[in-house]
């Protein structure tokens, strides 16, 4: 992937974001209960879905790394997870803002999506510390890939269990905005926003991959030229 190839993708991302959030603000109807505040739904939920898919994609690349797939698989796994972590922070922040405006509190244990997200986030917070604690680059990539696979499988299970427990502990939860039938315009707007956020994720992943691989090539050239600084510095970033 080159900078040239990234340009159309970037333009597409900007366009989709503009259309999606244009629809969300000017076309989709105001929510009967929550009014304008409910618009954050078009940001919060797509971010959440994309972050979760990103974690699972990280697991997929981790598995490919273990199975001796393409050499860049560990880097792809790292970047997929790293970007999903950033999206996950945004999910927790937008979720808290939504909770504050809708129910008057920053955090609610009654919202299974948010609670599951916190647990998943907590687990993925250990990803970089795990990498950093293993010096040997080959071993680090191995352990990180196993983590990515295990955690990727953990994501759906965790969601199912938290949702089940929530129904059991609080049979009458607050009505969830994603439940029930959405009016057509809401559904369409939501879908466009989801696609826009997904494309944003893919674009950012590409940018980070390009940046990292360029750095590696630069370092390799420096090493060739300088001779010294033979061994890459200890780092949580894969040394592809």
């Amino acid at each position: 992937m080159t900078v040239r190839g990234l340009r159309p993708l970037t333009l597409l991302t900007v366009l989709l974001l503009a259309v999606g959030y244009g629809l969300a603000f000017f076309w989709a109807p105001l929510d009967a209960d929550q009014g304008f505040r409910q618009k954050i739904f078009y940001l919060h939920v797509p971010l959440g879905i994309v972050a979760l898919i990103g974690f699972v994609v990280g697991g997929y690349h981790g598995l490919r790394h273990l199975r001796g797939g393409k050499p860049g698989s560990d880097l792809r796994s790292y970047v997929a997870i790293h970007m999903a972590q950033i999206f996950a922070v945004a999910v927790l922040i937008t979720g808290a803002i939504w909770g504050r405006t809708a129910w008057g509190k920053w955090w609610s244990w009654d919202e299974p999506f948010l609670v599951s997200f916190l647990i998943v986030f907590l687990l993925y917070c250990c990803y970089q510390p795990l990498r950093l604690s293993i010096d040997d680059p080959r071993r680090q990539a191995r352990a990180a890939s196993v983590f990515a696979v295990v955690a990727g499988a953990f994501v759906p299970i965790n969601f199912a269990v938290v949702r089940m427990a929530n129904q059991y502990l609080h049979p009458r939860t607050l009505t969830n905005s994603t439940d029930g039938s959405m009016p057509g315009s809401v559904a369409i707007t939501f879908l466009v926003c989801l696609v826009a956020i997904a494309v944003l994720y893919a674009t950012l992943v590409r940018y980070e991959l390009l940046s990292k691989s360029t750095t590696f090539r630069l370092r390799a050239l420096e090493r060739q030229a300088g001779g010294d600084d033979l061994i890459p510095r200890r780092s949580a970033v894969p040394q592809a």
Binding site: L130, D135, R139
Partner: peptide, 11 residues
């Protein structure tokens, strides 16, 4: 995963 990790008791 933590075999060979430096700070195993933390990880």
């Amino acid at each position: 995963m933590a075999i060979g990790a430096r700070s195993r008791e933390l990880i």
